[in-house]
Write a protein that binds this DNA or RNA. Structure first.
Lengths: 141, 141
DNA sequence: CTTTTGCTGAAAAGAATATTCAATATTATT
DNA sequence: AATAATATTGAATATTCTTTTCAGCAAAAG
């Protein structure tokens, strides 16, 4: 689960070209460089990618995030603002401040285990999940 | 929580015109008429609305679902297929079969209570949440 | 009843994403 | 290594979904 995108591509048989490797690198490093709650949309990814290689087209960025998403490497989010946002699919959840748009990431084993049980109860196997908590700052602070 | 859309609009001060009432009715009745897992997109809503009143424009459908969503009456979903889908905001969750697209609805009090606790732990109050389980049929059946 | 405000339909505009196509790069086959 | 087959890319165009503009109509306020 702590594999790099490159390792995940190898494991899933997704071919990595120079462009894809650059895009993968930008996504991998987005947290490191831009803070914990960084969820770049395609346009933002394109900007960051262009800083490294300005020959890469936005069409390739779209094609690549789609490819990575379909391979289960990336997770696509909406967060109610209309644009797709991408990040590594490492099974964490999001708490979204609906006033400010600020995003806090969290994981919770208890919820994960209940999710699995619910899937099983319906005759399914859980492959992936998405949990978003839309919140406002608590009065009592 | 079992109010009709009309009652919710009244409670929230959203004015109901004939067109909005028709759209509200179509959304309210979508489950009844089309099955439990019915999550119409705007185009589908427009078709159903047109069957009742073919003078209503698609612009009004877009305006109305946006209005209802912003008032917290409707919930907007994505389900990884790129188009917005709307349904009454009654706090249930979704299990999505990633092979067939079939959707099963469920609620779980245990998860709800953990969600509230997580929000509180971060100094927030939970307003709304969205949980999606992406699954495949279990081999053992 | 007149004025103001808001809603609507039709069309146009806008934004996000997907696709076409010729050029280039990669891989497989001799 | 040379050639043939296949896949990927950039640029431009097309498509899809959604929003906005604007003139006419309806509702509410004065």
């Amino acid at each position: 689960m702590t594999d790099t995108i490159e390792q995940k591509c190898l494991a899933k048989g997704v071919k990595l070209t120079d462009q894809r490797r650059t895009i993968a690198r930008v996504i991998s490093e987005s947290k490191k460089n831009y803070g914990v709650s960084d969820h770049p949309d395609v346009d933002e990814l394109y900007k960051r990618v262009s800083d490294i290689d300005n020959k890469i087209s936005i069409a390739t960025v779209y094609r690549t995030v789609k490819l990575f998403e379909e391979s289960g490497i990336l997770m696509k989010h909406d967060f109610k603002d209309g644009k797709a946002r991408y990040e590594l699919n490492d099974d964490h959840n999001h708490l979204i401040d609906i006033k400010t748009g600020n995003i806090i990431e969290f994981t919770n084993e208890e919820i994960e285990s209940i999710q699995k049980k619910i899937a099983e109860k319906h005759g399914y196997k859980l492959v992936d999940s998405k949990l978003e908590l839309y919140c406002v700052k608590d009065k009592s602070d």
